[in-house]
Nucleic acid binder design. Structure first.
Length: 139
DNA sequence: GCCAACGTTGGC
DNA sequence: GCCAACGTTGGC
């Protein structure tokens, strides 16, 4: 069971909108980066990821679940990229900001810190637990 | 196949 | 709003 992090600008697609999409979820389209694509190709049904708001907020705000495995992204004219479907699981009790993450030495190797530009990232199990603890959530 | 130029992203 | 980091493009 692997863990992930999905990054989005809230002005483009926010966790609130993801919540409104409900149990059916939505497709995570628009990824045009091969490293991010590789992450999505590795995702299995039921795996969970953090939902991170970049730019304006810079915080992990919620948890999503993969509900459809990698398939072609119809919005990609080149046909090279695909996407997965995700649904919102729940918002975090407490948002975990980028500053919180940088202040936690055990999270110094998170991809979010090391390569903040990658839009879909892998998260290790220990990173997942630490962030969930910071958010006041049980794991 | 190299690399300079350019565009985009995202933290500050 | 600036700029560093990174990915992509295109000329050679």
């Amino acid at each position: 069971m692997a863990y992930w992090l999905f990054k989005s600008e809230p002005s483009t697609w926010s966790f609130e909108q993801q919540l409104e999409a409900g149990a059916e979820g939505t497709f995570w389209n628009g990824v045009r980066n091969h490293l991010a694509k590789q992450q999505m190709m590795a995702m299995q049904l039921g795996e969970r990821g953090f939902f991170y708001h970049s730019n304006e907020e810079k915080a992990i705000v919620g948890v999503v679940e993969v509900i459809k495995r990698y398939y072609p992204d119809h919005t990609d004219p080149s046909g090279k990229f695909g996407m997965v479907d995700v649904r919102a699981v729940s918002p975090l009790k407490r948002k975990v900001t980028l500053a919180d993450i940088k202040a936690e030495p055990r999270l110094a190797n998170m991809v979010l810190v090391k390569n903040s530009r990658l839009s879909v990232q892998p998260v290790t199990e220990s990173e997942w637990r630490i962030v969930m603890a910071l958010a006041g959530e049980a794991t």
